[in-house]
Design a protein around this nucleic acid. Sequence first.
DNA 1: TTCATGAGGACACCGGGTGTCATCACCTCC
DNA 2: GGAGGTGATGACACCCGGTGTCCTCATGAA
Lengths: 189, 189
Amino acid sequence: MPRWGPDADNRLYLSAMELIFERGYDAVTVAEIAEHAGLKKRSFFRHFADKREVMFAGAADFEKAVVDAVRAAPRAVRPVDAVMTALADAGAGLTKWGEPVRQRQRVVATSIELRERELIKFDSLASAVAEALGEREVDDLTAILVAKAGVAALATAFQQWVDAGGPADFPELMAEAHRRLRAALCDGP
Amino acid sequence: MPRWGPDADNRLYLSAMELIFERGYDAVTVAEIAEHAGLKKRSFFRHFADKREVMFAGAADFEKAVVDAVRAAPRAVRPVDAVMTALADAGAGLTKWGEPVRQRQRVVATSIELRERELIKFDSLASAVAEALGEREVDDLTAILVAKAGVAALATAFQQWVDAGGPADFPELMAEAHRRLRAALCDGP
DNA sequence: TTCATGAGGACACCGGGTGTCATCACCTCC
DNA sequence: GGAGGTGATGACACCCGGTGTCCTCATGAA
């Protein structure tokens, strides 16, 4: 399909990762990323909406995977369980890539603007999940709350996975987060 | 204490609100805000870290109020209830200001960068709440999850309050969010 | 061979944000 | 009351992210 230098998107992505992992996000300019990929600054912005976005390539795929899994869950499954399972599975797929993912996440942690972008990705994910829940006769308020709670569990489990360093079972981290949240909310005096 | 033109912070804030409410966030430059307050662009950045920050003046006070309330909650109160109550009370204090707060929030909704900033404020709030919970013998994982669930309820209730338009009882919106979340997580098959 | 197409380049411009040095009102202390 | 310290502001020069516009040119189809 690409009729020019093949795969400009991917070349830019790889170029960005190489330079940013080496020197840090703030110390690399868009012009440098582009030149390193054999392109010009102006062209970078034809492939990525802004500099931050290159760090979140694949986020749309992740969101789609989660939403599809929520939609595919049997109606008998409670909404919260459908969401937690979908997020755990998608997270398992992501964390399977191991070290590069951790490295990327450590870069995100160094920059406020990247943290902000990450949070809006999470928020977008929650909204999409809530909408998917709406298709299974869950009221809007419950849907968004369950979605946000799920995303909170995901973010927490993901952080633990990054900090763990070695191999860690992501779905188990998610399940543990779910249990703790449930205990905190449900076990009452 | 201020020995120059009094209250430059507040002048800049009022100047920003006036211009932004009138023309929209993107259509107003920092230089315009500063000049309108009798200052120069360079000085704006001596009072606010960036352009977005002027829309969130008072966020630090809000966070402090919440954290103090969590700390002040009796030990017998469950963590989740302490958090929800603290957030409901702080939210009540905020929503008491009525229309100007709704107007500000509508501006935030128009801009991606403002949404991002809002999300990181919420995230900061959750971290601060989690730390406060840590002081009452709540394990770290539970603390951050409860804090994030509370903030999710806050954000949802706040959105409902903005959309409601007229007077709305914020603590009741929070309580309803808490009930729905609890029902979704706890009522099992 | 010609032509439409779309990726990429050139170039100018804008606005947010920062480093640095100069200025100047105010306060204090002698 | 004058000297000096202090801190807020101004002036100015940059940098970089981001965009609008027009031009170039390889490619594939007719």
